[in-house]
Write a protein that binds this DNA or RNA. Sequence first.
DNA 1: CAGTGGTCTAGACCACAGA
DNA 2: CTGTGGTCTAGACCACTGA
Lengths: 231, 231
Amino acid sequence: MAGHVTYREVKATILDRIKGGAWPPGALLPSEVELAAEFGTARATVSRAMRDLVEDGLVERKRKAGTRVRKMPLRQARLDIPLVRVEVEDQGAVYRYALVASHVGAAPDWLRARMGLPGGGEVRHILCMHFADGQPYQFEDRWISLDSAPDARAADFTAEGPNEWLVRQVPYSNVEISFSATAADAEQAQHLGCALGDALFRVERQTSWDGRELTFVRLTYHRGYRMTARY
Amino acid sequence: MAGHVTYREVKATILDRIKGGAWPPGALLPSEVELAAEFGTARATVSRAMRDLVEDGLVERKRKAGTRVRKMPLRQARLDIPLVRVEVEDQGAVYRYALVASHVGAAPDWLRARMGLPGGGEVRHILCMHFADGQPYQFEDRWISLDSAPDARAADFTAEGPNEWLVRQVPYSNVEISFSATAADAEQAQHLGCALGDALFRVERQTSWDGRELTFVRLTYHRGYRMTARY
DNA sequence: CAGTGGTCTAGACCACAGA
DNA sequence: CTGTGGTCTAGACCACTGA
C-alpha cells in the first residue's frame, strides 16, 4: 500500500475541478459516497474535505439536495485583531504606551444608549496613546462599565493599556466591531500629530461578557494607516 | 441509552470551563484520551470539538505538548465581502448601477508597479457608481488587466458592474484586501455628493487568479459608511 | 524514547428535505 | 419514502516534538 489518500488531497482535487471549470458555478457535485469510491477513501475523508470547502465559501451543501458550487462565491476575509502592542512589535517597531487621562463618573447618555447600560451606572473613562518607534500610532478612547467590571475602578493604567488588562480579566467575550472613516477633531489631531479634519481610520468595538456590556472603545489610527487581509 | 454525547456538547462544556475560570489562560487541558473517557465519547468526538476551539482562537494545540488555553485570545473577525448589489438589497434598499466612464489603454506606471504587470500591458479602466435608494453608495474605480482577462476588452459594463461580470468569469481567486480612510478628491466628492476633503471609507482590493494579477479596484464609500462584524 | 495530537477506516444510525 | 449530508464509534497508524 502506498498510504492513504488524505483529505487535503481530496480537497485540492475538488478545488482544481472547480477552478478548471469542470464543475461550474451552480453545478451539482457527486455525492460523498460516489466521491469516496472514486478517490478510494472512506466517506469521512471526503466529508472532511467538503467541510473545509464549505468554510472557504466555495460550495453549499443541503441534505438530500446534495453539494453545489456556489454561484456567487461568498468570500469572507479573516481579520486578525491583535493587541496594539503585538501589532506594532510584529512590524519590528518599538512599542510605547502612554496614559493621557482617566476618570470615573456617571455614564453619559449617548454611551448608556449605545451600551444599553442601566441608569446611574458608573464608568471609567480612559484616554491613552500607543506609539510605534516614537511616532503616534493609535489614539484610544475607552469606557469601561464599573457595574460589569468593578475591578477596573482601582486598576492602574499608567504602565499598561486597558486592553491588555481587560484581556487578562476576561478570557472570553462577544464583540461587535465596526470600521469607518472620521475627520480628525482637535484632540485627535493633537495626539496623532496631524491636521484638523484629516481623514483617519477608526475602529469602534463593543465587548460584552456573560450577557453584560463590558466596554466600548473607539480607536483612531494615525494618518495613512491601512488594515490588510488576504483570502 | 439516551443517545450519544455530541461534539457540540463537549465543546460547550469545555468552553464553560474556560469562561468560568476552571482552566485559566495558559492552563494545560487534559489530553484527548482523558477527556474522551470523562465525557464517555470516542476520541474523534473530543478532537472535533477541539478543532472548533482552535478555530475560534481559544486554545492552542501542539503535539506532545498538549492543549493550552491561549494567553492572549487571538480573535479574528470574519468579514463577509458581498457584491455591492447584494449588500444594498440586504438592507432593503433599491440598488441602482451606473457606468461613469470606461476606456482601454496602457497601464500607468503606478498600477504596473502595484499589480506587477509586464511592460506594455494593456488594461481596461472603469469608473462606475452604485446607488442605494437613489443615494450614492459606492464609487468604484477599477482596472482590469487585459493580458489576464482578454474578454474584458469587449465586455459591456453599461447594465452590470464589472464585479458581477468578473465573478461569473472567475470562480475562484486570491485576494488581498485593505481598508483605510481617505480625504475625498474632486471626482469622489462630485459622485458621492459630499464636500471636498470629507473623510471617506475606502477599500482597495487586488485579485489574482491562477498566479496572474487580474484586477485592482478602489472602492470609496459614501460619507458615514460603516463596515460591521461580530465575533 | 514516549506521549500528544492528526488523520484515516469501516461501519452505523440519524435528521432533514426533495420527489 | 428515500437519498443526502451530519455525526459518532472503535480502532489503528502516523508525525511531531518535548523530556
